[in-house]
Amino acid sequence: MNESTLPNVAPDALDIPDAARLASGDATHPPRILILYGSLRPQSFSRKLALEVERLLQHFGAETRVFDPHDLPLLDSVGKDHPKVQELRTLSEWSEGQVWVSPERHGTLTAVFKNQIDWLPLEEGGVRPTQGRTLAVMQVCGGSQSFNVVNALRVLGRWMRMVTIPNQSSVPKAWQEFDEQGRMKPSPYYDRVVDVMEELLKFTLMVRGHSAYLTSRYSERKGDLAAQALASASAAAE
């Protein structure tokens, strides 16, 4: 690189994007998908949708986990060593993709759902339990169709450094869309759910194995090189 062209760039920290490095990965295990939902009600429609999503994902060949938010304490009311907190964090690290399903409450996502995300750190011990994972966002509505929750979830997904897929699902009047066995009835809304899960799996298959490369940042590499140089200089001075 001609350093005079970009005088403010550290050339050793620059990594020119390379299509060859994004060739198909060597992972052969089923895609690992974590599903989170946002209601504790016995007849929770977000839970019913989460379970419907799980059936579809398993049919597509994914390995799934559904986290039960019951007994997850409020953020900071207990230490991070609490069993439910550890369960959630372990599942997030295990996952290669996630599905977030929340009801709409007062025009936004529920406290039950937000509490789960708040317990997930951006980084802990050099591990980022959400960065680079794919994400599908979905909501259920008690009344007419709204997109308030999926929009809010997209903000959260970006903040958690996740690869949020373009498609999404919003199910209006959810109480009409499930039968007595808790299965989602045939409808255009169900078809959209299938669309979203297909897309999530496709993106997950593309991204997994490459997330470290995709989320590698020039600014962080530059900082690492500066820290290494400082450590070397300190060691030489001793």
Rank of each mutant, 00 (worst) to 15 (best):
N148K: 10
V150S: 00
V150C: 01
N151W: 04
N151F: 06
L153T: 02
L153Q: 04
L156N: 06
G157F: 02
G157H: 02
G157S: 03
G157C: 01
R158S: 13
W159A: 13
M160L: 12
M160F: 10
M160G: 02
R161Y: 07
R161L: 10
R161E: 15
P166W: 04
N167T: 15
N167E: 13
Q168C: 06
Q168F: 08
S169A: 15
V171S: 02
V171D: 01
V171Y: 02
P172N: 08
K173S: 14
A174F: 01
W175T: 09
W175K: 12
Q176M: 13
Q176W: 06
E177Y: 03
E177G: 02
D179G: 05
D179V: 09
E180A: 15
E180Y: 05
G182D: 04
M184Y: 07
P186D: 12
S187L: 08
S187W: 08
P188V: 14
Y189D: 12
Y190M: 11
D191W: 10
R192H: 11
R192M: 14
V193M: 14
V193A: 11
V194Y: 08
D195L: 15
D195C: 12
V196I: 11
V196Y: 04
V196W: 05
V196Q: 02
M197P: 02
E198V: 12
E198P: 00
E199C: 03
E199T: 06
E199V: 05
L200Q: 05
L200K: 04
K202P: 00
T204D: 06
L205S: 08
L205I: 12
L205R: 15
R208P: 01
R208L: 08
G209H: 05
G209P: 02
